[in-house]
Nucleic acid binder design. Structure first.
Lengths: 147, 147
DNA sequence: CTCGATGCAAAGGTTTTGCACCAGG
DNA sequence: CCTGGTGCAAAACCTTTGCATCGAG
C-alpha cells in the first residue's frame, strides 16, 4: 500500500527536497482509486490539494524525480499525452487504436508473455506496457487512426 | 509481396489521385528491407527518390490516405514520433523503455496473446502493437525513462 | 474544367529548457 | 548559507490545419 507519506519518504531517501507542490503531487498519487493520470490531470488534482497553482513544468520535473526514484512510471498509450501510474500497480493496458478505449490487464493474464519477453532478453513484469489493438466496436473499421 | 505498383493501384482503387510525391512515397514503402520508418525518415527517403522536396504535411496526408486504404499503419513506439509500416508486415515490437532498442516479434510468437485480446473483446492479429519493457542492458536500472 | 493534392505558414498539443528568484535542509 | 526547486516564458518537437495555387482525371 502506497501512502502519501511513503512517497515522500522515498523522495527524501533520494536526497530530494520536500516542497509543498511535491507533497500535493504525492498526495494525489497516493489516492487509493487512482488508476493512471496524464500530467495535466495530475497538475489539476494537485492544485486542488494544494489550494494554489502549480506550474506544469514543476509537475513534469516532479514526475521525473519520482521516476528516478522508481516510484512511478509513465507510458504512452497510443495517441496523445502519456500517463503516469505507480510502479507498484502492476497492471498493463489494452488500448483501442481507434477510440482510445482502455482495458486494464492484471499481471496474471500475461503469463505467456513473460516467457516471451524473457526469451528476447527483455524484462517481464517490472514495466508497464500498452498493447494497442482494436476494441469490439471498431474491429472491422478501415485503417484510419484516431490521432 | 508489396510493390510500388500495387500500392499505387490501391490508392487509385480508393479514388485517390496519383501524384509524383505519392509515387515517391509508395516507392519508399515498397522497398523490400523497409522495417518501419518515422514520417520524417519517410519524407527524406521519398525526397531522394523524387529528386526534390516534399512537404512534411504532404507526407502526413499521404500516410493518412494509405491508412484509410488499410495499406499502412502507424504505431507510437513509446517515446517520440510514431513509425509507419506496411499493414501486410504482420509483426510486433518489443521496445526498451530506456534506450529505445527494438526487437521485432513475428506473429507466431504471440499466439497466447491473441487469445487474451479475444477474451477482452479486442481484435488480435490485425493491428500492429508495441510492448514496452526493458532490454537486457537496462533491466535493473532505476525508473528514469528516455524521453 | 473541377475537385483533390500540394506547399507554405501558422497553430495546436505535449514536453523540455533557461533563468532569475525563492526556500528547504 | 547553499543548492536545488519553482514559476514564468520561450523553445523544441510532432502533428494538424487553413488557404491559395497547381495539376490529375
Amino acid at each position: 500500500m502506497v501512502t502519501r507519506r511513503s512517497l515522500i519518504e522515498a523522495l527524501r531517501r533520494e536526497g530530494m527536497r520536500i516542497t509543498a507542490p511535491r507533497e500535493a503531487i504525492c498526495a494525489v498519487l497516493a489516492e487509493p482509486d487512482l488508476g493512471h493520470v496524464s500530467v495535466a490531470e495530475l497538475q489539476q488534482r494537485a492544485e486542488q490539494v494544494l489550494g494554489r497553482g502549480i506550474d506544469l513544468s514543476t509537475v513534469y520535473r516532479t514526475v521525473d524525480a519520482l521516476q528516478e526514484a522508481g516510484i512511478v512510471h509513465h507510458v504512452h498509450l497510443g495517441h496523445g499525452a502519456s500517463v503516469i501510474h505507480l510502479s507498484e500497480e502492476e497492471h498493463h493496458h489494452l488500448v483501442c487504436d481507434l477510440c482510445g478505449r482502455t482495458v486494464d490487464l492484471p499481471l496474471e493474464e500475461l503469463g505467456p508473455l513473460a516467457e516471451l519477453l524473457e526469451r528476447h532478453g527483455y524484462e517481464p513484469g517490472t514495466v508497464h506496457f500498452a498493447i494497442v489493438s482494436r476494441c469490439l466496436s471498431h474491429r472491422d473499421d478501415p485503417g484510419s487512426a484516431a490521432d
